[in-house]
Design a protein around this nucleic acid. Structure first.
Lengths: 113, 113
DNA sequence: TCCAATGTTCGATCTGCGTCGTACTGTTCG
DNA sequence: CGAACAGTACGACGCAGATCGAACATTGGA
């Protein structure tokens, strides 16, 4: 009941997903949520990633990601918690999240030699 | 020797690929090249897909796709032939091209019921 | 009830980039 | 050599979207 509306995963098209992921800020957010693996406060993600944007801009990006079917928002008292729709995205677009995880600048690359 | 310079597939990042595929025209071009499966003249792709853009714009998009490591350009006499770097892209980003092929509006969707 | 905290919405601004037209390059052929 | 063809390079224009600040909404607690 405390979930913000989001599209069913079957109705999500790859076109919209690609547009959503094309922005560097949103890509960072998705990667951070993927790394967190659990419900996370939006502003906490901002702090963790070091992305410097206003709260209205963050709200905008979260909205885009949610409408693209990539994340889910849950109302928890005073704050909104967000999470990656991991399994659903994996089911609809197999391997997509793995591609984002690879070459993530926030994680230490394998070839640091 | 008659190949236009292109990045090695290992140096291609998912970020750049996502940005390249975020544009609807470029997405159409990639899908058309994927469907063609062989060296194709750029202007022929335009005609086949029905995309209405000027030739300088087409040249721009082809350049973006090539720099993103997705396509290859070969000089053939007076014209330039382009092709998808199918195997390399599949190796680096497994499943990516399949995602684009699915839900391709140019191909008849499976569920036309 | 009043206030603080978190996030959304709205309007305005500004930058990036998709688009076009023209000029230019390179190739083939007469 | 010169003309026609295919594409590239470059500068300019316009629009979509990223960003911000301020006002508003909602919840929790004092």
């Amino acid at each position: 009941m405390t979930e913000v509306i989001e599209p069913a995963i079957e109705t999500v098209t790859i076109d919209v997903v690609l547009s959503a992921l094309a922005d560097p800020v949103r890509l960072t957010l998705v990667r951070a949520l993927d790394a967190a693996g659990d419900w996370t406060c939006g502003s906490d993600v901002l702090r963790d990633t070091g992305v410097a944007i206003g709260k209205s801009t963050l709200s905008h990006h979260i909205k885009v990601l949610r409408q693209a079917g990539l994340i889910r928002t849950r109302v928890d008292g005073i704050r909104r918690l967000v999470t990656l729709r991991n399994d659903e995205v994996e089911q609809r677009f197999p391997g997509l999240l793995a591609m984002l995880r690879e070459q993530d600048p926030a994680r230490a690359p394998a070839s640091t030699a």
